[in-house]
């Protein structure tokens, strides 16, 4: 029989049989990482202020919402680079599709900006407000009105920020989780996992800047908690894959005994989660001076997790299935 004929009827290379999927490069992991990071920062800053009933005391702490705006813009820039038809972006905002995570994401991203801006402006000290007032010049009255609104609605804004942050974090994972053609991604755990990872990386970023003592301690505790939850969710994800059907087994193999195994265990599980967890616990229990290396490891681990999940997911298409 002509091999070509066999190929067309039996082979997996027929584009009509397996879906052809676009391969993502570095842009998407960067976007997912920064998105998760900003989600974590939003949740943590709002939670910290609601818990303490006091605004951030250090200049660095007050600046973080604005830093987050910069980071999410960087992430969206990376995403924009990945788009095939860049001028069509506006179409996202012509409709809302309740069943599409992409549509949810596009709209969440739009809400992130004003929420972060209000959160940041309302948290500024008097000195910083004066400085900002002098800078904006003619827009002064507008700034005053926005500021007044941000002050008056401080608590609702913080609650909104927490909700939007959580939504952003879950969505970065859910985006992958709903793609059934990628075996590794197709899990309901992805959303919570990426949120937990976002919270721990967000805490790590906040721990890199100068905060007051109390805030630092609370964040270390929350960071530890988030890392613990993340480890548990990873275990759930892997157990689910291992005990799943052959498609899930193929996906599990990439992390448990294949191409991405060493990176996953070394950079994510040991270096990015287990070691920082121990360092955090030791810091809390023995009152040791904090080190920047702990948050650095968490950030590296968080980025590695996004990169590996994206890469390993794309590695596991149906073509690998027996």
């Amino acid at each position: 029989m002509n091999p070509q004929l066999v190929e067309i009827t039996h082979g997996r290379t027929n584009p009509g049989i397996d879906p052809v999927l676009h391969a993502w490069g570095w842009e998407v992991p960067v976007y997912l990482f920064l998105g998760g990071l900003v989600a974590g920062v939003m949740v943590l800053l709002a939670a910290l202020e609601l818990k303490r009933r006091a605004k951030a005391t250090t200049p660095a702490g007050q600046a973080m919402p604005f830093v987050a705006i910069g980071l999410i813009s960087l992430g969206m820039g990376a995403l924009f680079l990945d788009l095939a038809h860049k001028v069509h972006v506006y179409r996202f905002y012509l409709s809302f599709e309740a069943t599409s995570p992409m549509s949810w994401g596009a709209w969440i991203l739009m809400i992130v900006y004003p929420v972060l801006l209000l959160q940041g402006l309302g948290g500024l000290s008097d000195g910083a407000r004066g400085w900002l007032r002098a800078k904006v010049g003619g827009l002064g009255t507008l700034l005053d009105r926005v500021q007044a609104f941000a002050d008056a609605k401080r608590r609702p804004i913080l609650w909104t920020s927490m909700a939007v942050g959580a939504g952003l974090g879950v969505y970065t994972g859910l985006l992958l989780g709903t793609l059934s053609a990628r075996l590794l991604w197709n899990s309901a755990v992805m959303g919570p996992l990426f949120l937990a990872s976002g919270v721990s990386t967000g805490a790590a970023l906040l721990l890199c800047v100068k905060l007051d003592h109390e805030a630092h301690h609370t964040l270390v505790r929350w960071d530890t908690l988030a890392i613990g939850v993340e480890l548990a969710l990873l275990a759930v994800l892997l157990l689910g894959l291992v005990t799943g059907g052959s498609a899930q087994q193929v996906a599990a193999d990439t992390l448990l005994g294949g191409r991405y195994t060493p990176y996953f265990w070394s950079l994510v599980v040991v270096g990015g989660l287990a070691v920082p967890l121990v360092l955090n616990v030791v810091e809390m229990r023995r009152g040791l001076r904090p080190t920047l290396l702990t948050p650095a490891l968490v950030l590296i681990g968080g980025f590695a997790l996004r990169t590996l999940v994206v890469a390993a997911g794309q590695y596991t298409s149906f073509g690998l299935m027996p």
Binding site: Q4, E7, I8, G11, T13, N14, P15, V20, H22, W24, E27, V28, Y31, L32, L79, D82, L83, A84, H85, H88, V89, R91, F92, M102, G105, A106, L109, L175
Partner: peptide, 18 residues
């Protein structure tokens, strides 16, 4: 000779990661 797998460019691809 095998039928080459053509990358189908799809318009729906906008928002690769969004």
């Amino acid at each position: 000779v095998m039928p080459t797998r053509k990358a189908v460019t799809r318009k729906t691809k906008k928002g690769g990661g969004c």
